[in-house]
Amino acid sequence: MVAVDASGATRVTKPKADNRQARTGWMLATPALVLMVLILLVPIILAGVLSFTNYSLGNSGFGWVGLQNYERLFARSTYEKMFVATFTYVVTVVPISVGLGLGAALLVHSLGRIGDIYKTIYFLPVMATLLAMAIAWEFMLHPTIGMVNRTLEMACGTWLEVIPFFAGGCADGFPIWLGDRDYAIWVVCFIGIWQGFGFNMVLFLAGLTSVHRELYHAAEMDGARSGWERFRLVTWPALGPTTVFVVTISCIRAFQVFDTIEAFWPQGGGPNKSAYVMMFAIFEKGIQQNLIGIGSAITMLFLLFVMFLTLIQRWLVERKVHY
């Protein structure tokens, strides 16, 4: 009698418990779900739709213009400069900041505890407000009273003048950096690297500490004599997933460069638009000039690039996961 009751009870309560769990699950997840849709998904759709229109804020209506916005993106020289600046930045900053990050991580790691001081120092730019540091750099690079040119001037009259750069600088003055269209984008790249490589270093350090020490011993026993051989055999493969991640996140961050450029050139993105990157273009066209259609088109392209990169990363990681 008791046994029958018990089995009956479980048969009834089991689905009931499932129902209750399902209800709670949805209840707990709904706020997040709603916000996700409203804040992340709807805007993408909105941008997608608006990129085919000539809508402006304040206008009551708008007209469909088809692919005109996208055509403009690929036809006008301003946007050509935008793509050139963005890709120059990404292609410069990503490899160098990843490479420096890896190099710094290997050096710091090999020094043990003393290395921590360098880790702290290199991480400072990551923590600092980029805008403030951009302004500090702007002063550093001031053509006459900036620290950079003052330091360079100290080389005048020494053997360093043999180098053409110094010879020219001492004769006609050193570059005006931010005002020079040949230098502007590279200065921005430099600051991007300056700011980002410490972050990459820390990620690599995390990867390095997770390498099992016995693997290095095994490599030594197996006859890997040089540090390079051990790097090839143990360190580099172990850092594979970290590297993929670091490269992706560096790319995404590089695509989003804005603060430095807006701080240096609030109007127009650098001398001769040489540093007119995509985020700045979205800001200038879409928000300042209220050209929402073209701004949305740039947004869509931007999203395409970023998602493409992340998907490549996911794919690479998936492949690597099956050790």
Binding site: A47, Q256, T299
Partner: peptide, 8 residues
């Protein structure tokens, strides 16, 4: 990236 959809 939320920055990317700043305009919409």
């Amino acid at each position: 990236p939320v920055h990317a959809i700043a305009l919409p």
